[in-house]
Simulated scan of single mutants.
Amino acid sequence: MKSQNQKLSIKHWAEEDRPREKMLQRGASSLSDAELIAILIGSGNHSETAVQLAQRILHTVENNLNTLGKLTIKELIAGFKGIGEAKAITIIAALELGKRRGNTDAPQRDKISCSRDAFQLLYPLLGDLPHEELWIILTNRAGKVIDKKKISQGGTGETSADIRLILKSAIQTLASGILLFHNHPSGNIAPSTHDDLLTQRLKKAAKLMDISLLDHLIIADNRYYSYADEGRMNED
């Protein structure tokens, strides 16, 4: 029988109490500072688990990560049994990354407020192609671009569209809006019957998932046709 002073190996903890498993189940934000540090150092010492060691480290700096970040590698090694050079370097490197992230501006996403915005975003990819390609732009509720993706590639006259692939991409990125694009290598921007059918099918399918088909643009040379601009997105 284990004595009360003998630590319980981390592999014997309840799964929800293990930092790595807890992160997988609940996300990084559910972990305490000590649990995050425990993941970094990986193991404790003969008398402490990684979490207990991390808690003790934080206690010495009054649980202040900024103060922890000011400790040197030598101070971490000398001050805490179980912290060697590799673990000390890992802690300092992680804190430095956090500091740099705080000083970095979040990337600005493209925003689509009209068909011209959408055209300018995809024209460089589709404008000069000798064959047809079908693309989508996925947006959030503010009209900011989450992702753009090629769905299919065809010949000189037509490309196929798998609505399931389009919706899968939208669902995976939690998009609220879809803009559909394809090019006409012939130079004729007029939509075909096939284009009309695809627009209506995708609009109805997306609506079932509470996703809006915002527009369908046909690009040819330096021109484009917009279903939304032509008032055709409200057609049944």
Rank of each mutant, 00 (worst) to 15 (best):
K2M: 09
S3H: 11
Q4D: 11
S9D: 12
W13D: 09
D17Q: 13
R18T: 01
P19K: 06
R20K: 11
E21V: 12
E21H: 14
M23A: 15
S30Y: 02
I39G: 04
I41P: 07
G42V: 11
A50H: 01
V51N: 00
Q52T: 08
R56L: 04
I57A: 07
I57W: 03
L58H: 05
V61H: 02
E62K: 14
E62G: 05
N64W: 05
L65A: 09
T67D: 13
G69Q: 11
I73N: 07
E85F: 09
I92Q: 14
A93D: 14
L95E: 03
E96F: 01
R101E: 12
T104K: 10
A106Q: 12
A106E: 10
D110C: 10
D117L: 12
Q120H: 14
Y123F: 11
P124K: 11
L125N: 11
L125P: 00
L129G: 04
E132I: 13
W135R: 12
I136C: 03
N140E: 11
D147M: 09
K148F: 11
K149T: 13
S152E: 04
G154V: 08
G155W: 00
T159H: 00
A161M: 11
L165A: 13
L167V: 10
S169A: 15
A170F: 06
I171D: 05
Q172K: 13
T173E: 08
A175Q: 03
A175R: 05
G177C: 07
L179F: 13
L180N: 02
F181N: 06
N183Q: 04
S186F: 00
G187N: 01
N188M: 08
N188Y: 01
I189C: 07
S192I: 03
T193I: 13
H194T: 14
L198R: 03
Q200G: 09
L202Y: 01
K204R: 12
A206S: 13
L217V: 00
I219D: 01
I219G: 00
A220T: 00
N222C: 08
Y225N: 05
G231S: 11
M233Y: 00
M233D: 01
M233T: 12
M233H: 01
D236A: 14
